[in-house]
């Protein structure tokens, strides 16, 4: 499913890439941008987190020329007053973004990438950000909106409300297992993708991935986790006693043989007499009570009480 998102065949809409400190998701965003550029789509980036130079690093040289970078990195709060007309994080609205995009737009539909929405969310009320995103999504101008969100920087409610708008949410987490696929190095991370398709169906998939130096994404398929495997279909009519390698019932003959068998530790009359028979050379106990022996018939163990 991750490859579909990178190839842009997942159906457009709002795609949220949720990352955390332990596993940065910028490489995935850049992979999506790079793939879109290779398909000759027009891509606009609202850059708050990293500089243009850093964002462009690693993108395909030729294709990257068509990328339009809206600089919200240098002066997002208008402190220096250097970049007049630059993007600011203070007024994030659908109209402003639309105006910026239409300034330098070809005829083809636009892919918009926001790196990252966390900057915007820190300086704007969540409700208005969600409203602007929704407005942009409904707009015919944009084909896709890719949003990077640092989920550990915000309260859960904020993250959830943004994810609620999204048609696809990719949650990136570090790979914790040992070794991935035999013969390969461990994958970089696990991407949990939740996609809501138009019919209302929700698809979920978990994949391990690695982003290469050329921003190509390699997917290793589902990680095998014992807790997440699907339960095997259970046959309710199966007889648990069928196909046993031993017998659960006894025939009449077997029962008789069983009843006749003397158990090894049962004390039978035979055994008793065998044990009591005096043997030649065996010891004898001679006991002659003397006067001091006060033998009490009623309490033979009287002498034990000291």
């Amino acid at each position: 499913m991750l490859l579909e998102i990178i190839d842009g065949t997942e159906g457009g809409g709002l795609v949220v890439i949720k990352d955390s400190v332990n596993c940065p998701g910028r490489c995935l965003l850049k992979s999506c941008v790079n793939a879109a550029l290779r398909r000759k789509e027009s891509v606009h980036v609202l850059g708050f987190d990293v500089s243009e130079e850093e964002l462009r690093a690693g993108l395909d040289g030729e294709a990257a020329k068509s990328l339009v970078f809206h600089n919200g990195y240098t002066d997002p709060l208008c402190w220096t007053g250097m970049g007049t007309g630059q993007l600011t994080a203070l007024h994030f609205s659908a109209q402003e973004i639309r105006a910026r995009i239409s300034q330098s737009r070809g005829p083809e539909p636009v892919t918009l990438a926001v790196d990252s929405l966390s900057w915007v969310l820190r300086h704007n009320p969540t409700a208005s950000v969600c409203q602007s995103l929704q407005e942009l999504r409904r707009d015919g101008l944009l084909k896709r909106i890719l949003v990077l969100l640092h989920s550990d920087l915000h309260q859960h409610g904020m993250v959830d409300s943004v994810c609620h708008l999204a048609s696809t949410v990719v949650t990136v987490a570090p790979f914790s297992g040992l070794g991935g696929v035999v013969g390969e190095t461990a994958p970089q991370g696990i991407a949990m993708t939740t996609q809501r398709i138009k019919s209302g169906k929700v698809l979920q998939e978990e994949e391990c991935f690695t982003v290469g130096q050329d921003l190509s994404v390699q997917v290793y398929g589902r990680p095998s986790q014992p807790g997440l495997t699907e339960p095997e279909p259970e046959d309710s009519q199966a007889d648990p006693a069928a196909n046993l390698t031993f017998n659960l019932r006894l025939s009449e003959h077997e029962r008789q043989a069983k009843d006749n068998l003397a158990l090894p530790f049962a004390f039978s009359q035979e055994k008793k007499s065998a044990l009591l028979r005096p043997r030649a050379g065996g010891g004898q106990i001679l006991y002659e009570p003397d006067a001091a022996d006060d033998f009490d018939q009623e309490d033979p163990d009287d002498d034990l009480d000291v």
Binding site: P24, C27, E53, E54, A186, Q188, G212, L215
Partner: peptide
């Protein structure tokens, strides 16, 4: 965390 010196965080 991979600055401009390395393009991404590959080579974990």
């Amino acid at each position: 965390r991979g600055g401009r010196t390395s393009v991404n965080f590959s080579g974990l």
